[in-house]
Amino acid sequence: MSERPVNEMSFEEAMKELESVVDALERGDVALDASIALYERGALLKKRCEDELKRAEEKVAAITLGADGAPTGLKPVEGL
C-alpha cells in the first residue's frame, strides 16, 4: 500500500489503492492489527473517491447546452 496522503491522490489513484485494500482484506491472510490499519486506510480512500465523484458530477451539471446541443459555457458552481 502507498504511504502517500489520501487527500493528494487523484480519483484513479485512490480507486486503485482501494481495490488493493479490499483484495487484501478479502484474502484474510493479514494480521489483525494490519487488517485494522488497512480498513482505516480503505475508509479514507472510499471517502476520497466519493468526494472526487461528487465534484465531477457538480462540474458536469454546471455545463449548459445550446439549442444545437453544443456546450455554450459553464455556470458557476457554488463552492468550486
Results as ranks from 00 to 15, higher is better:
M1N: 08
S2L: 11
S2Q: 11
E3C: 09
R4H: 03
R4T: 13
P5M: 14
P5W: 13
P5F: 01
V6Y: 00
V6F: 01
V6T: 05
N7T: 10
E8S: 13
E8W: 04
F11N: 03
F11R: 13
E12R: 03
E12V: 05
E13C: 06
K16C: 10
K16H: 09
K16A: 10
E17V: 09
L18I: 08
L18K: 00
L18Q: 01
E19T: 09
E19K: 13
S20Q: 12
V22E: 04
D23Q: 10
D23A: 15
D23K: 09
L25R: 03
E26F: 02
G28R: 02
G28D: 03
V30C: 07
V30S: 03
V30H: 00
A31T: 14
L32F: 13
S35Y: 05
S35W: 00
S35N: 04
I36T: 10
I36D: 07
A37E: 05
A37L: 10
L38A: 00
Y39K: 06
R41S: 06
R41G: 03
A43I: 05
L44H: 01
L44K: 09
L45C: 00
L45H: 00
K46Q: 12
K46E: 08
R48L: 11
C49V: 15
E50N: 15
D51G: 11
R55M: 12
R55C: 10
A56F: 12
E57I: 15
E57F: 07
E58M: 15
K59V: 15
A61K: 14
A61E: 11
A61M: 15
A62L: 10
A62I: 09
T64N: 08
G66Y: 02
A67S: 06
D68E: 05
D68I: 08
D68W: 02
D68M: 00
G69A: 02
G69Q: 07
G69R: 02
A70R: 10
P71G: 06
P71V: 14
P71N: 03
T72K: 10
G73V: 03
K75F: 09
P76I: 11
V77W: 06
E78T: 11
G79E: 01
G79S: 04
